[in-house]
Design a protein around this nucleic acid. Structure first.
Lengths: 205, 205, 205, 205
DNA sequence: CATGAATGAGGATTCATTCAT
DNA sequence: GATGAATGAATCCTCATTCAT
């Protein structure tokens, strides 16, 4: 029983790994089931024992990407130098390795969220989670590894931080060879304001 | 003569408008020529009198989107309240109307830039233009409607500004109903740092 | 009236010349009306004023080819050296010039005769004419520029001659660079028997 | 394993048989994949599992035709009465049965050799083989079933023989009901010269 | 469980033909 | 007469999905 479940899980993983590679290379719609099967080194028919259809694979890939991203984003909070960590985060994309964030998939899934309600919901829920985790982090007291920002400020900074992270992904897709040093400065400039200090005139706000 | 050219131009526009609608709705790869033809209210074959193939349409759409975005971004520089203008920019998306930026198309084109060299080049050239325009703007003297930032700071802030703009687009796609007030605050917080003041330690730089 | 007829004839000729070029290059079925129109430097629609449809053009081209071939074959009878004349006949193919026999068209029309009854009839009638002209030639008395062969022998030699001519065309299509000297010898060897002498044992036949 | 290969081979054969029928009936360009599929009693898509595209089928048909012709031509050398054998060869065409030479296909492939380099090469190589086999045959000593012609004469007669064979095919296409007796005599007259005797002045050669 | 042959709908594209101007 | 825009059917080909083995 358990061994059968293990096998099923392993097969699913094998398929998803292959699908990730294919989708990354060709996009959700041009990555074909045949190619996925070939990449997974199994027959096309077998895939349907583990996934109802192609869309199920796409959804699973999206869920998996969201999981990976969530974890990577959580890891950011442990970083000594948040800017450097973001640069790394931003950097480790587009690897053929597994467990890596795929920028093209991220963008495509975001575009698809505009069309497919199921994807929209998954993405939305992910965003809510991340945002609230960020807010929590920023508002926690420094002795609890937080930044001690007031709740409302924290929420707004969390949103800004998310924009930054996602903006960086777009940069990465559009200009993968961008000057790293310049980028680091741009990131640091943003972060200065976001997380390291309260806004100058916050009492007057 | 001129009337024939007019007609040709009108037809091209009609096709591109239809294609924009279809691609927005279904993505570049799922938007079919048949659907475009139907939307444009013409036969599928006729499209090929005006565009060599589907890819040519995709490239034209991308070029048109980049043009629109470029113009919209240039307009930002004339804004009284840059934050509000960005919010507007961010807001006027996803309309079925023309001359509107389409967030899904923007994201898909960015993802596709990862795969198609022709798209990559178009996007890259666009980015370079915008970045240098931004840098120029930020480094111009205030009396010339600039911010008087030193060149190197200006370049880094330009990059940050671009990340912000694109991050906002991703936000829009993933969470179209986001709290506007919160967003405005997040934008303003970023802008404070980006364009309104020099970095704290600038004398020591 | 007459000038209108002249114009019509000129237009037909222009179209047929263009069609010949196109069909030669691409075959009857792949040579498109659009290409023909372009080659003839006229609009696609205009062609239909002079020919009912594409098939009518094909038939006209075939008729024209048969005319050209008929004339060329008739010219053979005036040759000093029939073998050399045949080599020339064989040689002057595939020129881009008009009024030339086109080997590919000849072969295609022969193949098509297998399928289209109209073409079959045209071709058949042509063959009958040529064969009887050949027979007549071979059986005419030498003082009338003939070979004085008895009627039955003449008929059989006429058929053999025709096979030779057509066999040479196939050769030309399949191996356009064939050794000319060798070919001349082969032709002469055939002709020796065909037209220059009676069969050795004809009295005993 | 072997059974899978068998199946694949059988399918390929089924497709090629169907294609042969269709191409014969409509020509290479008008015989459509849909018709071939229908004739082969399978779906259109399935054909693409066995052939990369339509052109691959055309090339395979041509290769197969060349094989059949090559074999049939080789068989000629074993004939008691070469003239009668040629008449048979010439006769057994246009059958819907397999392993038969198809005159229309032969003509079309020869025409197409004029346009498609790949076909040109296949045809050219075939011609070279046949010509050298003929030359060899004619130059072999009579006790080795040859005709003992000197090498150079043999080469020229081989070429003449090939013209005759191909000329007969053209005849067949253009006038399938030709008088058989007359044809036999024409063939025999040609052969007399080609293979049964040395040229008159051979001692002086 | 696994295969991969088979299907059939759908996609991009071409082209003979028509017709308003 | 002449144009060339427009049509729509047909063509080649792909691919998600099913199913007999």
């Amino acid at each position: 029983m358990s061994s059968a479940d293990d096998r099923a899980l392993a097969q699913r993983t094998r398929i998803l790994d292959a699908a990730q590679v294919c989708f990354q290379k060709s996009g959700f719609h041009c990555g074909s089931m045949a190619t996925i099967a070939q990449t997974a080194d199994m027959s096309a028919g077998l895939i349907y024992r583990y996934f109802e259809n192609k869309n199920a694979i796409i959804l699973a890939i999206i869920a998996s990407q969201l999981d990976i991203i969530r974890q990577r984003i959580r890891d950011l909070r442990a970083a000594e130098d948040l800017g450097a960590a973001l640069l790394d985060y931003f950097d480790s994309q587009c690897d053929p390795e597994q467990q890596q964030i795929s920028v093209p998939l991220f963008l495509e899934m975001s575009a698809e969220a505009t069309r497919d309600p199921e994807i929209a919901q998954a993405v939305r829920q992910f965003d809510d989670t991340i945002l609230s985790e960020f807010t929590d982090w920023l508002s926690r007291s420094p002795e609890n590894n937080g930044f001690g920002l007031p709740q409302d400020i924290a929420a707004e900074r969390a949103l800004g931080l998310m924009c930054l992270i996602e903006g960086l992904k777009v940069r990465k897709a559009r200009n993968p060879d961008m000057d790293r040093a310049l980028l680091k400065k741009a990131i640091d400039a943003s972060l200065t304001n976001f997380v390291k200090q309260l806004p100058p005139a916050s009492p007057a706000d």
